[in-house]
Design a protein around this nucleic acid. Sequence first.
DNA 1: ACTTAATTTAGTCAAGCGATTAAACAACAG
DNA 2: CTGTTGTTTAATCGCTTGACTAAATTAAGT
Lengths: 217, 217
Amino acid sequence: MGKYQSSKKTKQALIVAAGELAAECGIGLVTTRAIAAHAKENIGSIHYHFGSKEKLLHAAIYSIIARWQATPLSNIVANSDCSTAAGQTETIRRVIKRFATLLFDPAVPAWHSRILYQVMQYANPLQDTFRTLLLNPELDQMVALIKAIDVDLDDETAQFYYFFMITPLLFHADYKYAVLSRLGQTEYEEDYLRKLTDLSIKQTLLMLNLPLGRIDE
Amino acid sequence: MGKYQSSKKTKQALIVAAGELAAECGIGLVTTRAIAAHAKENIGSIHYHFGSKEKLLHAAIYSIIARWQATPLSNIVANSDCSTAAGQTETIRRVIKRFATLLFDPAVPAWHSRILYQVMQYANPLQDTFRTLLLNPELDQMVALIKAIDVDLDDETAQFYYFFMITPLLFHADYKYAVLSRLGQTEYEEDYLRKLTDLSIKQTLLMLNLPLGRIDE
DNA sequence: ACTTAATTTAGTCAAGCGATTAAACAACAG
DNA sequence: CTGTTGTTTAATCGCTTGACTAAATTAAGT
């Protein structure tokens, strides 16, 4: 297994198909037959390459986690100057822009953002993996970062502020189709996403009593 | 049909069971057998009383819509004074408190908040009903309300502000189990919900450049 | 109490599911 | 070009699903 060129292509096609279908109708409702048809592959290939439908979905989710880990928060945290108010403002700006990029950048497959947090919404066996590999590390780092900005906060309040920080972005990912339908569009426009990011930043800075001005252009 | 006392009880038990199970594992993954077992009723009763599983789920969702319609936004809009800044502040406060009540009040079944917006997240046949009866009227009223507060806003921006307004509340409903797991609790505490509502109000007032002070106690 | 009709029940159905298999096919080494 | 083996294919498995049905049961009107 994995010696021919075609093997890698088939596996990738199946992962993408599984991801796209799961994004559309929900992880639990995706069938092996639908995945195979969408990928233009055979049902048997799912079991040949991944062992089971669940393992294929696991691989799809893992590919998302890997994408997030390739843009680590630690880069921002390491290069940020949290000793001045202006530096804190810039750090918040970068954190939100990273989040927006991971959710909405056209270079990141659209199904990523629709699946990642789907895992968290309902009880399912993939949650533990997801929490250990991505969610808890992200949250712990963000709590530490926010506490570095305001040393008076306890863990729960810092996390609470983080929720307020990312929540409009998350909403626009989760309810993407519903929002787009209201807007009469088929994809978020660049302008809209910029407005979304900018207001998320501004509201977060107001919440944390940080100055709104930015350092670089 | 519907002539015996037991009929109403059975129908209600099936609706609650369907709602609770759909809240737990997702609308699409609920089975007739699971509903019947959870309601301690017979599978056949689902088809006898509702015709099909889908119609039962439709009835469950309709019961949620009815709960929202019983607490109409129009009450707030009609009694609000949007001519003064203080009146506008109070209106925002009431709108957010209504939303928080509908999502988190223990008097409202917990499964309501976990299902309502589930309908919006994935393509499914119930969306049209939901949009026509609840979502579009709510959004249209809120857009009008926000435009009454700031007459310079266009529809899209007013709706955009509304998203920012409700998004933290919605997040805490959608990701309830994940958040509770992080908090190490099994249910949101009164204090936490008050903090959530208060900060939502404060952030909205900041966003709309309204004074933070309140009118009544 | 009896009758009637509404409701509940258990059993059955075809359809679609994930998984498995053996045969057919195709890629690569020599 | 040929043999080997990794990969793909179509057919089939047992199982669960939503739906249906006829029989049993129960509630209410008389």
